[in-house]
Design a protein around this nucleic acid. Sequence first.
DNA 1: ATATGTGCAAAGATTTTGCGACCCT
DNA 2: AGGGTCGCAAAATCTTTGCACATAT
Lengths: 144, 144
Amino acid sequence: MQWFRDRCAEAGLPCTHQRQVLYRALLEAKDHPGPEMLYERVKRDIPSVSLGTVYRNIKTFLDNGLIGEVSLHHGPLRLEANNTPHHHLVCRVCRKMFDLPAEQVESIHLREALPKGFHLERFVVEAHGLCAGCAAPKRTGRTH
Amino acid sequence: MQWFRDRCAEAGLPCTHQRQVLYRALLEAKDHPGPEMLYERVKRDIPSVSLGTVYRNIKTFLDNGLIGEVSLHHGPLRLEANNTPHHHLVCRVCRKMFDLPAEQVESIHLREALPKGFHLERFVVEAHGLCAGCAAPKRTGRTH
DNA sequence: ATATGTGCAAAGATTTTGCGACCCT
DNA sequence: AGGGTCGCAAAATCTTTGCACATAT
């Protein structure tokens, strides 16, 4: 928890009670919770907390790198007719995606077995980085 | 397009004009479009089409395997405090996620260079399959 | 002929935001 | 003291659904 206070100080963020409880909820969670779930957990300590505060602080934490999104693909559904197995290049800024044919990636190997009970069907690879537009110095990409 | 008619017939789906135009829009799209984008494109051919029809048919296509979702992670934002590099196991049915430490996966190799202009930062691996609960015969998992 | 799909509009779910009161530094 | 945050509620965004009419097989 001291780590959290230090990081807030570094980032110039007031270390409010709400933020501490929210961050602790995230630390303790092993189930990759969403905002609604975190709201429920924070409410156990701060019954008066509002969902808006949870959303705002999640965004603040993300912007400052204190926590991470589980994937770059939350938000609107995105689709493709391409049914052949393939991977994706994903731009971390504008979230544009490009196909990467399966044959282009050498097969994946594990060093240890997966946890018992999980039935693996296939590996999907995402190459994360910056697309040409967002890597260029002058362009801004996603604006949110 | 005949492929599409045949698949509809196989699945017992009426092959309506709206569905043909929507499917064609998906075939021609190289940008992994979302529902709103597809709606715009279908409207060029069928100005009276409704957004509800686009959503309904997207769902129908997904349920019948005619198209795919770009990722299993659309929908609500999901978060993690774990900042160490790691991958995920994802259940295709209930979408529960489990962490997979980075060291457990041997490093990824490409057989060809990535397209020029994309600045790769890291590879993220997702192991897709069925979790213990959803693989078991009696349980149902996600119900939608 | 019949089962299913469609357009419309309202509802539901998820996320953002404006505002005045309040808290952290 | 002062700037940022909080709770509240309204708005914005994304997705689903009920209904009456139209369409595909």
